[in-house]
Structure formats: structure tokens, C-alpha cells
Design a protein around this nucleic acid. Sequence first.
DNA 1: GTCTATAGGCAGATAGAC
DNA 2: GTCTATCTGCCTATAGAC
Lengths: 194, 194
Amino acid sequence: MGEKTAAGTRQDILSTAMALFTAQGYDATSLRQIADRLGFTKAALYYHFPAKEHLAIELTRPWLDAISNLITLNQPDPRVPQDERRRRLIEDYVDIVVAHHAVLRFLTQDAAAQKHPDVGKRALSLVIGLQDALAGPEADDADRIRVACAIGAIHATAIMDSDALTTAQPIVVSVALAVLGVDAPAKKAAQVTA
Amino acid sequence: MGEKTAAGTRQDILSTAMALFTAQGYDATSLRQIADRLGFTKAALYYHFPAKEHLAIELTRPWLDAISNLITLNQPDPRVPQDERRRRLIEDYVDIVVAHHAVLRFLTQDAAAQKHPDVGKRALSLVIGLQDALAGPEADDADRIRVACAIGAIHATAIMDSDALTTAQPIVVSVALAVLGVDAPAKKAAQVTA
DNA sequence: GTCTATAGGCAGATAGAC
DNA sequence: GTCTATCTGCCTATAGAC
């Protein structure tokens, strides 16, 4: 355990980078700014990360992996009813969005990150995969539009204050399910129609 | 009418800039790229616009003015019922979003533009104003979260293909109204519950 | 692991010729 | 209205000392 510095600064760099990326955007944030805030020079950053883009890749990977996981675990399956699968997808996806809302904020508002193959392009294909999983195999155009609206509603949580999220989470779930026309389990029905 | 070049190139510059800004982001787009695509040099751009940021300002102004207008025209008013006011706000806002969806796409995905006082900051305060107008004076936290979800659902249309928009528009309106709990006028009720 | 120094490039913006 | 030429500044990234 003599390596407390090594792993420590690496994490410091990542969280400082995240703070600046979300506040100013990826392009607008220079390595000098990150280094300055940490108290050393930008050259030192290159000891920990081979290039600037690796910061974005590392920062977004956990979130992207979580979505990827969610989709593979909830493929259409004749043994589970559609609505149950959809409800799981929505509930778990809102969990993921709340847990990683800083990442989502950074990703959705940053055109530079969206262009990167390992970041934005992957995020795009994953969200499309999620939409397909939610829409199911026999959806028509209108269904797919409603799915897009539901995901849009969920993504709106990303720009909320962090401390409003615990209040918002169950409401967002109920809204998304209502948009998709998935019946809430009996005891929660009151929330939707209230 | 000997000035066909003057007004013409100005518009050419704006539409080229919009295309590149939405595709790559504001920061990532250089004046050289814009000039190259138009067949002249970046110095020539400075004859038409005093600085790069004026491109973003000009491009977003019509959309921002439209929202500003919408809000002032639909302030809470004892003479009109809440739900009617809300329905007008939603219907007209979706109209605006569809009409200016390229601008919305550019704005929501570009951190650099969001930082600019005359662009992103103004957009933010306008959207907050729209949320307040939609929530009404006696809304609680849950109401405000639902409003945020409704707006998120509407903004999701910005990333759709342009040719899907005419199909999407009425569906998006009905989704947003349903999220807010505004009853659709009788003949449209079927769409929401379908 | 962090430093200084620097290479090499491209950005936004200006001056002045045509 | 568009050009060439140039200024100034900051960026990413690398090399090599400590």
C-alpha cells in the first residue's frame, strides 16, 4: 500500500477534469487548467494519461458499461411479459442516470465528446439500443416517438440540481412509464394519475 | 438591387456556420473551415461579422426571441383557465422547437455556446421562464419536476430526423400534455390513452 | 512523479493592397 | 468584398533533467 500517491492523483485528475469538462466543455478545457488546479504542470498529466482524450474515455466508461449491461440483461424474452421488461428497463435506467448524472450532463452538452468513437459514438449506439429494447420488436413509428420522449424526460434529470434528484427519481420513473403506456404496479398507480 | 452578393454571402456564411456548428460544435469549428467551404478566406468573414461569436448570436436570436414572445403572451391571467394557457404554451412551444430544431440541437449540445451571455445564458433563463409559466404560481416540487420532464420530452424532438418531425409533432404535444395532466380536448383524447 | 523547456501547429483577429 | 500577410496567443504533446 505504498502507492497511495499514484492512484490518488489519478483519481484527482479525473475528478478535476470532470468538474471542468461539465462546467466549460471538453474543448474549452485545457490541460493547463486541470494541472493548475491540481498544483502541478500539464506535463505531469502525461505521466498518468497518454492523451487528453483518455480523460474523456475513462470518465464515461463506467456509465457506458452500465447501459450496455442493462440492455443485454433485458433483451426481449418470451418468458417475461413486455410490460415487466419495460418497467425494469425504465427503473434501472433512471437509477443509472441518477448515479452518473454528471457524466450524462457532460456527454449531452458536449459536441466534441459526442464525436469521439469511444465516447459519443458508443453512447449514441447504446441509447439507440435502449430505445429498441424499450420499443420492442413490433413497435410502429408512433411507439418509437413515445420512447424517444420518455428517454428525453429521463435525461432531463441530468440538468437538475443533485439534491433534487432523490425527490425527482420516483416521479421521473412514473412519468416515463406513463408515457410508454406501461401500467404501474397497483400500489403506485395513484402517483401517476394524481 | 446591385447588392445581391452582400446579403447573399451573409446568409451563406450563416447557414454554413450552422451546418458546421451542429455537426462539430462551436469551439471545434474554425473560421478557416467556414471560409474554405464557401470558397474564400477567413479574413473575408470579418467584413461581414466582427467576431466569431456574432455568428452564434445571429443564429440563435430568432429562436430565443420566439420563446421570449411565447412567454410574455401567456402569462398567468385570471381570465383564461390554467389548462387552456398550458395547452397553448405546449402547442406553441412544440411549434417553435420544430421550426427551429437545428438551433435547439446546436444549443443543447454545445457547452461553449451555453456559456455565452447572449446565447446560452439567455436560453437558460428563457427556458426557466417557460417552466415557471407552465408550472403556474401554486406548483409544488413534484409539479415542477413533471414540467421539466415534459420539456425534456419536447426537446427530444430536436435530435430526430427532420423528416420524422411532422409525424412526431402531434404525438409530442399529446405526450407533454399528458405528463402535465392537462386534459386533451375531447376529440384528441384517444391518442393519449391509445 | 513532477519539473523546465520547447517543438509544432492552428486558432482568432488585424492591416492594408487590390 | 475579398485578398495576402502577419501578429499574438494558446493549445497538445514530447524530451530530458531532477
